[in-house]
Amino acid sequence: MASALINVPGKAKRGEIIEIKTLMSHIMETGFRHTVTGEPIPRNIITSFSCHYNGVEIFRADLFPAIAANPFISFSTVATESGTFDFHWIGDRGFSESASASITVE
């Protein structure tokens, strides 16, 4: 099952500011809700997101229960060299998903 949508420009000029967009499939259950019989629904959220550009961390975010399902995270960076972006999402119940995208810098 598809879990992530990644949008990284395939090509960029050296020094150009590029936008990176990520969408991860996740229910982001807050832990504050109850079932019809009154039992609490345990929290199940993504707690951390990170992005590495050729092995160097360039972006990190902590996520909290108030963030909507299927979190969309967008950020910018400077295109310095050709290579890969590695994305990593970590969450409750051992949730761990990775994705990557490559870029050619001219």
Binding site: A2, S3, L5, I6, N7, K21, L23, S25, F72
Partner: peptide, 15 residues
């Protein structure tokens, strides 16, 4: 934008 439209997650599953 297909990369920000969460409906595309289902579309990819459907594929």
């Amino acid at each position: 934008d297909d990369t920000s439209n969460p409906g595309m997650l289902w579309t990819l599953d459907g594929e």
